[in-house]
Simulated assay, not measured.
Amino acid sequence: MEDEITASLLERRSLAMNPLLIPEAYIIGAQPLCSQLAGLSQGQKKLCQLYQDHMQYIGEGAKTGIKECQYQFRHRRWNCSTVDNSSVFGRVMQIGSRETAFTYAISAAGVVNAVSRACREGELSSCGCSRAARPKDLPRDWLWGGCGDNLNYGYRFSKEFVDAREREKTYQKGTYDSARLLMNLHNNEAGRRTVSDLAHVSCKCHGVSGSCSLKTCWLQLADFRKVGDALKEKYDSAASMKLNSRGKLVQVNNKFNTPTSYDLIYIDQSPDYCVRNDSTGSLGTMGRLCNKTSEGMDGCELMCCGRGYDQYKAQVVERCHCKFHWCCYVKCKRCTKTVDQFVCK
C-alpha cells in the first residue's frame, strides 16, 4: 500500500494534468500566491499550487529554523545574520561552509516540525494524527492511539518540498556546483533525521483520583530547542568533504569516522567573519555586543578580532520584585537600571 503522502501527490498531480477535474475554488488564487512567494524554485512553485494549505506551515517551519539558528549562534562571530528570511530556501551563502550546512539542516528540520504538528492539529486536508506503529517495548496494558504528531507525513513532505530545489539543478560530474548539490541534500536529510531521532512516546494517565491505572500514549516531537542543540553539536563535529574522481563526496581526512546520514558535512572552510565580505556572506563583527569578562567566543577579545571595543552606559528595563500570588500567578514590577555595555570597533 502506498503511503499517504505519495498517494496524495499522485492524486493532485493527476488533477494538475487534467484541469477539468480541478474544482473552481482550487484554481482561484493559486497562481498569484505561489508566483509571488520569493525564493521558490519551479518545482516548489508547482508543489505550492498543489498544496496551498501547506505553505503557511512551511513558512512557519523555516522561520522556526532560522530563529533557532540565531539562538544557537548568538555568541559567535557568525550569528546566522546572513540568512535571508524572505528566501529561506534560496542560496543562503555563496560558499559551502559549516554555517551553510547548519542553515540547510535546521531549515529542513523546521519544516518537518511544523508540518507534522499541523497534521495533528487538523490544519491540513491531506493528513491527520500520526499512524505510527505501536512501539514494541510499550507495556501491554497501555493504550496506543492518542493523536500524535504525524512525523511520517511531515518527514516525507519536507523531503519532497525542500529537496526540490536541489533536484532541479543540473548535475555535472566533478564540478563545484555538483559538490554543493550533494552537500545540501545530505544536510537537509541530516536535519530531518535529527527531528525523527528525537521524537518520543508521550503518555497521559487515566484512573480514579489520578491513580494512573491506565495510560494512553502517542508519538510526540521533541521540543525544537533539543533539535537545535543536537544540530549545533553536529556543526561542531562536521566533516570536511571533497569530490573524488567518480563524482562522489568523500572525507578529506580519512583518520576520522565516515560521516553518517545524521552528520553535517561541508566542502569549504569557513571565513573568519571578522570583517564584512559580501562574497562570503560575512557581515563582520563591527558594532556587535561583547562580554568583557568572558574568555569564550562571546568575549570582547575573540568577538572583536583584536580590534578593541568601545564602552558605554545603557538603560536596561527588566522584571523585578516578583511575588507569587495565590492562586496562581506571579506579579512583577519593571525596574530600570544602568549597565555597562561593550561594542566591537
Rank of each mutant, 00 (worst) to 15 (best):
Q172D: 15
A133F: 11
L243P: 02
Y329L: 10
H54R: 14
L219H: 01
E166C: 04
Q42S: 14
V330I: 14
T338V: 06
Y273S: 06
G247L: 02
R76L: 04
D84K: 11
T6F: 01
G65M: 06
I22H: 11
K313H: 14
Y273N: 12
N253A: 09
S41C: 06
A101G: 05
F89I: 02
C327I: 01
E11K: 06
G43H: 11
N188E: 14
G174Q: 07
R91Y: 12
L231K: 00
S116K: 06
E4F: 09
N187M: 03
S261M: 12
Y51R: 05
L249A: 08
D236I: 01
H321D: 04
W142V: 00
K45F: 04
Y266P: 00
D137F: 03
N254T: 09
R180W: 14
R334Q: 08
S211H: 04
E60P: 05
G90A: 10
V339F: 03
F157W: 07
K292A: 14
V92K: 08
T336D: 14
V317R: 15
V195M: 01
T336R: 04
S97T: 13
A190G: 10
N113G: 05
E121K: 15
I95S: 12
D223C: 01
L264Y: 01
R225G: 04
Y57T: 08
I28G: 10
H54L: 05
S178G: 09
Q52V: 12
A314I: 15
Q49L: 06
N257G: 11
A314C: 10
D163T: 03
G65C: 11
Y273T: 08
S209A: 11
G306C: 08
E11S: 15
K345W: 09
I58T: 12
G191W: 02
E99K: 07
K226M: 07
N79V: 13
G128S: 15
D141P: 08
Q31W: 04
R307W: 11
K234S: 08
S86W: 13
A164E: 13
G39V: 05
N79A: 13
Y262S: 08
F256V: 14
L124W: 15
Y262M: 09
R77L: 02
F161N: 08
S237L: 14
C290G: 05
G43Y: 09
G228A: 02
S158M: 07
S294F: 07
Q94I: 00
A132Q: 09
S261W: 14
R131K: 15
L214Y: 10
C80L: 05
K292F: 06
Y273W: 12
Q70I: 10
D310Q: 15
R74G: 09
A230T: 11
T175F: 00
S130G: 13
G96I: 02
C305V: 06
G247H: 09
E233G: 07
N187F: 07
L40D: 02
L151E: 05
L33E: 09
A239N: 02
Y262W: 02
A132P: 08
Y262A: 12
L214P: 01
T338K: 05
R77A: 06
C205N: 05
R120Y: 13
D236H: 14
E60H: 12
C335A: 03
S130R: 06
L37P: 00
I27P: 15
I267V: 15
C119V: 14
H206M: 11
L47V: 03
G287D: 06
Q70D: 05
V227P: 00
